[in-house]
């Protein structure tokens, strides 16, 4: 997995490439924990995300909870497979998907 961050004032965009799974989810979790202070808009760009497991979903859920308190979170660029995962787990009702 590869994470690329772009911050513009209180807006943070994180591009995640590769697999977000048991092995890599802690890395994204740590990255978010470090970066979310003072952020009002979080954009997660998943255009190049190949694989997403429950470990990754838990990190998204936790980020969504944090952002609910301080602003908004948007997930962008998901492919068909990731969309299906959001659908079957009910995450499409929790997340804002663009």
């Amino acid at each position: 997995m590869n994470i690329e961050k772009t911050q513009n004032a209180a807006e943070l965009e994180i591009k995640v490439r590769g697999r977000l799974d048991t092995a890599t989810a802690p890395q994204l979790e740590a990255e978010l924990k470090e970066s979310l202070s003072g952020i009002e808009k979080l954009i997660l760009d998943f255009a190049e995300l190949d694989y997403l497991s429950s470990a990754g979903l838990r990190v998204l859920l936790s980020a969504q909870k944090t952002m609910n308190k301080q602003g908004e979170m948007v997930v962008r660029g998901i492919n068909e497979t990731i969309a299906e995962i959001f659908e079957v787990t009910g995450f499409c009702d929790i997340l804002t998907i663009e």
């Binding site: 497991s53 429950s54 497979t81």
Partner: peptide
């Protein structure tokens, strides 16, 4: 590819998680 994705999901969710 699709079968591999699903097989990986089966392993990760059932075994690892």
């Amino acid at each position: 590819k699709k079968s591999l994705y699903r097989l990986r999901t089966v392993f990760e969710e059932l075994c690892t998680q």
